[in-house]
Amino acid sequence: MRIVIFTLLGSMLLSCSGDLRLAAAGAASDDAAPGYVVSGNRVELGSLEGGELSLKKMVSGDLNNDGVPDRAVVLVNNSSGSGVLYYLNVFLGTDSDGWQFVAEEFLGDRIVLQEMSIYGEGSVSAITGVPIHSDDYGQLMLAYYTYKVDQAFSEKPALFLTRHWKFEAGDLQRLENY
């Protein structure tokens, strides 16, 4: 059963085309944006039904090549049960200093985040130390450990993943064969 659930949730990518626009005014100083999305529902940092939602990491860079900084965040839902669920939220910056939510993806349960970057001019891979090629500018990269299909959650996660996303045709797309 765990295999099926992980496969379904691990591949979930939700996207909005302008439906959720967030103004920067009123955001708490530790927030990357004034609102987030978890499992398709708008939420805020702090107490969440069934747990506590916190901001694990935030990076800025230009994802859609418009010259306006964008943001990607990793959120952690530390549930009142045994799960510690990680989510990616991506926001495009707007000309009016606001943020437009564009995508959410479930990353996994009890992952160990190693690195998160939005590649741009002068970027160097934190994993290999090699300069990033200009063709890869605008890519969002996450590197983390997660659990193998047959691995118990009582062990340290042993599967190292790097995932890349890029805006193509106005949508955030995960690059599969990278």
Results as ranks from 00 to 15, higher is better:
M1A: 11
R2V: 08
I3T: 14
F6Q: 12
T7F: 10
L13P: 01
S15C: 09
A23G: 15
A25W: 02
A25V: 08
A33N: 01
S39K: 07
R42W: 12
V43F: 03
L45C: 09
S47D: 14
G51Y: 05
L55W: 03
K57C: 08
M58C: 13
V59K: 04
L63M: 11
D66I: 04
A72R: 03
V73N: 02
V74E: 02
L75P: 04
L75F: 02
V76P: 00
V76K: 04
N77P: 07
S80M: 15
S80A: 15
G81V: 09
S82N: 09
Y86L: 05
Y87W: 08
Y87P: 00
L88D: 00
N89I: 03
F91Y: 14
F91G: 00
S96C: 05
D97F: 05
Q100W: 00
L107W: 01
R110I: 06
R110Q: 13
I111Q: 03
I111A: 01
L113V: 07
Q114N: 07
Q114I: 09
E115K: 12
E115N: 11
S117H: 11
E121R: 10
G122D: 10
S125P: 07
A126L: 13
I127K: 14
I127F: 15
T128W: 09
G129A: 13
S134I: 10
D135V: 10
G138E: 02
G138S: 07
M141K: 12
A143T: 14
Y144N: 00
Y144C: 01
D150Y: 06
A152R: 11
K156A: 14
L161N: 09
L161K: 15
T162L: 11
T162V: 12
H164N: 15
H164E: 12
K166G: 01
K166L: 08
F167K: 02
E168A: 15
G170F: 08
R174W: 08
L175K: 08
N177Q: 12
N177A: 12
